[in-house]
């Protein structure tokens, strides 16, 4: 088992190299940072000079090797747009994104799990359908649309909450709902499914047979067992949170990483995009790695031949 896990960890290395290579090539294929940074009025000479200064005119393999050399030594380069180290720029935005992502997850969990349980307990009754329809409705509205509607209602009409920006807790409410809504439906669906499933398991029946109160059975056993798959599912949604954050951060003027990444992609800020993609990829890969290892621990047959 130990050797499998070790092998699995070693396998992450080619994934990393693959991602850096693909990101690198895709970026070079898709744009000219010189044209974007220097603006419309730049002359041909100025563009050439700029490309030479930042080594953008070197052969691709040389550029890639330079980049990898930097990555290995922990030097992720300088943003072409901001002229600042990319790591500094990303770290500056990280707290805002963690805060928004964290509170959206919390909101989704706090709302999704009880609704999921409720929905499972009232399975297939009209109440179950109405609750699920409402939750799904939230998921079916495009994020920017929901965000603007919330601003119109709660900020402009009612005047209860600020329209955007990062400040005290009141600034957090609308972006949290906007980003969290997309996750709620998912959590409701999996909670419902997991609870239904667990309730049918033998040991729950045993527990019931032993005369434990339904509530105790639910919270002691069913919910507890549903937690891990739920956390796994939530973990897998990190990529969704990141992409949702782009829209939410833009609508609510939230100074986070999502906005930085999307703006950098639009501006062809190669070093910044490369590092940001590597960062998001690392998060996703580590979560996947953890899940794979959990799989093996759970079901040893999956492991070796």
């Amino acid at each position: 088992m130990g050797s499998y896990i070790l092998r699995r960890i070693i396998q992450v290395i080619p994934t990393f190299i693959g991602i850096t290579l693909i990101t690198f090539l895709v970026l070079r294929l898709t744009g000219d940072p010189a044209a974007m940074v220097l603006g419309e009025m730049a002359t041909e000479d100025a563009l050439q000079e700029y490309r030479a200064r930042f080594g953008l005119d070197a052969p691709l393999h040389i550029q890639y090797l330079r980049y990898m050399q930097g990555v290995v030594t922990g030097d992720f380069g300088t943003s072409l747009r901001y002229n600042e180290p990319v790591v500094k720029l990303l770290l500056e935005r990280l707290p805002a994104t963690l805060q928004l992502g964290g509170s959206a997850l919390l909101f989704a969990i706090a709302l999704g799990i009880p609704v999921g349980i409720f929905s499972a307990l009232t399975q297939n009754r009209s109440l179950d359908f109405s609750v699920r329809a409402l939750v799904l409705l939230g998921q079916a509205i495009p994020g920017f649309y929901l965000g603007i509607l919330l601003i119109m209602l709660f900020s402009v009409q009612l005047g209860w909450l600020p329209t955007g920006g990062r400040g005290n807790l009141s600034h957090l409410i609308l972006p949290t709902i906007t980003l969290g809504t997309a996750l709620v439906a998912l959590i409701v669906r999996f909670t419902r499914s997991a609870i239904l499933d667990v309730m049918r398991n033998d040991y729950i029946r045993t527990a019931r047979a032993k005369g434990l109160r339904a509530q105790t059975v639910l919270f002691r056993h069913a919910l507890r067992n549903a937690m891990i798959p739920l956390l796994t599912i939530i973990g897998l949604q990190m990529a969704v949170v990141f992409s949702g954050a782009i829209v939410t951060e833009t609508v609510f003027s939230w100074p986070g990483m999502g906005r930085l990444i999307i703006q950098s992609i639009y501006a062809r800020d190669f070093p910044l995009v490369q590092t940001a993609v590597l960062f998001v990829a690392t998060t996703v890969i580590l979560i996947n790695l953890a899940i794979d290892i959990l799989y093996v621990l759970a079901d040893p047959r999956v492991r070796a031949d």
Binding site: Q99, G102, L105
Partner: peptide, 24 residues
């Protein structure tokens, strides 16, 4: 397991709140 989950919840909550306070 559930205890751990509670710890995680508290951690997320703490993060949200402190980040919120810091930024005020």
């Amino acid at each position: 397991m559930f205890a751990r989950f509670r710890v995680l919840l508290v951690a997320i909550l703490a993060l949200v709140l402190t980040a919120g306070c810091a930024s005020t």
